[in-house]
Nucleic acid binder design. Structure first.
Lengths: 335, 335
DNA sequence: GTGAAAGCGCTAACAG
DNA sequence: CTGTTAGCGCTTTCAC
């Protein structure tokens, strides 16, 4: 491995001049600059990051944490972040937390240890009292998370409340009257809007319901719904109900797919007898037999904005605490 | 940021003793060790990796390259690798190459620059003449790739030939006689077995065909098939054929799903009128209306083995060039 | 414009 | 067992 002094020796100059060339300082004569440059590529020289870091200079690397890479939502999100960061000349280090606080600390310590210039957290596993301490070591951006108002970190998220409010309105416009609701949550605690992700969604749903003077039966709430199998069960449960809903907000495309499949088995016509609204817009959703109408999370934009926010932070700009993006309703055939 | 000398000062000892504790050298008295330890956590001290790297010690970090994180095959693969590496105390740095040679070099330079101890390449973008140069800087393991015999790098891959050979036999056993074949490739060049991924698959298919004295019509070969949409087109094409195949190896679950959906529209019974065999076993495949029979890539095992190979390499063991894993046929209802 | 020299935080001889 | 000391490769004053 060639070092800076090898280059200096070959170029017949001092290490400081070489260093200046590397960091393109303006105070180097054109002649010596090219001398250094040719020596550099003659030796295949690349500055050793560890040494530069030791001197406290930038790493040009960012870390981004996600709970699990196999979840498409997160893989697309991190993909979008990386694309944007890449354009700005940053490398990206993806850290899976597996929802474990310790793993999140690994990423945060990267910051403390000057291995990265900033970290983008796409889900938080530690209390802010812990995470907050790391802001002194570098920049932190949050994605898709809710934090108390007095905590001021740049946060990028989608407006779940608004999205679900509009989606529910949309169902009413379509003529539906009895709307069922499925969620991955174990229970819906009636916390107020702005507390968290699911509460926001449910609040949007409820507000639309109230505005339309529509009732909601407890039989129409399905919790702990995650998989296609869960969706199948839900459809069966719905069909066994006396007072059946005429449409369901499925909580995820996965669950929606299960509902769709079981509906086919049970000869329940979609959307005529039961409308099905998905959430997420996964790649396959468009090409199902009954193409799925779904509430799309703006993953791409979220990733882009998160990366932009980080970049601004790096440039020393202060940025507004929150950037809220809109959910989009993708209308296809299932509603 | 507390440094090693801060700790030494607080403990009333020398930096070397502190260093010994950090690297748990045996030659430290219990008493002083605990003295150092308490000083360390009193200060919240964490050794700075950059400084250690500079001294040439291990990074305990591995890089793994994948073309694209949003591809489920790769996200599951990297997930498996990381789990295993994690157990062994290594952090994992995931690098997306976007199939660009430069990005692969970024990962390889991590090795050169002593930022990682090894790199696992899950797809190669540069000629071996380039990659090979990096073996002098650290360990390299290949996954799912084919390389000339004289090149000896640990390589983990699934036996595509065997898998497709067995899968085709399986179709014959099921009573199918006319087997169609879809692939993502733009064309099937008849290179011999062992040259590459797709050639191996097709060779396995062909060999089984020949052994069963079965013919293959060029009308039954579908190339450039990637998406569910492509699958739909394929089904239409099949139905317009005079001499129709009775089963198709779809090349991917994605394509298989498209075929399944269009079959439903066209009222073609699966598997009675047309059998459909997928490849990959994606999460949704099990819960389709006609659960998909598919050739499963041993992603998990591949990841595990790749990680193990790397770990052995790190431990100084020499390992056999190739580790070949078996594809598995997951029998459900579509065949 | 250019070079000499002082460290960044840590490890590893080398002495004791 | 413990301490002293010389760098690892680089950036950055500070002189010239």
């Amino acid at each position: 491995m060639a070092t800076i002094s090898d280059v200096a020796k070959l170029a017949g100059l001092s290490v400081s001049t070489v260093s200046r060339v590397i960091n393109n300082s303006p105070h180097v004569s054109v002649k010596k600059r090219s001398l250094v440059e040719s020596a550099m590529d003659q030796l295949g020289y690349v500055p050793l990051p560890a040494a530069r870091q030791l001197r406290g200079s930038k790493t040009n690397t960012m870390a981004v944490t996600i709970p699990r890479i196999v979840n498409p939502f997160f893989s697309y999100l991190v993909d979008a972040i990386e694309q944007r960061l890449d354009e700005a000349g940053y490398s990206t280090l993806i850290v899976q937390t597996f929802s474990r606080p310790e793993e999140e600390l690994t990423a945060l310590n990267l910051l403390k240890n000057q291995q990265v210039d900033g970290v983008i957290l796409c889900s938080i596993e530690n209390p802010w009292s812990v995470i907050g301490n790391y802001t002194k070591y570098g920049k932190i951006v949050l994605v898709n998370e809710y934090l108390k108002d007095d905590i001021k970190v740049p946060t990028i998220r989608a407006n779940q409340y608004d999205g679900f409010y509009r989606a529910t309105n949309f169902l009413f416009e379509k003529g539906y009257k009895k709307i069922a609701y499925a969620t991955g949550r174990k229970s819906i605690t009636f916390v107020k809007r702005g507390e968290n992700f699911d509460a926001d969604r449910f609040a949007g749903f409820q507000d639309s319901l109230n505005e339309h003077g529509s009732g909601f039966s407890h039989d129409w709430l399905f919790t702990s719904a995650h998989t296609a199998e869960d969706g199948k069960t839900i459809l069966k449960q719905i069909m066994s109900l006396q007072d059946k809903p005429d449409v369901i907000i499925a909580g995820s495309d996965e669950v929606a797919m299960g509902i769709l499949q079981e509906a086919e088995v049970e000869k329940v016509k979609v959307p005529e007898e039961l409308g099905v609204l998905g959430v997420d817009d996964q790649p396959v959703s468009a090409s199902l037999r009954v193409p799925l109408t779904t509430i799309k999370q703006p993953v791409n934009e979220m990733g882009q904005e998160a990366a932009k926010a980080m970049l601004k932070l790096m440039a020393g700009e202060t940025i507004s605490k929150e950037e809220i993006l809109k959910l989009k309703i993708i209308e296809r055939a299932s509603v």
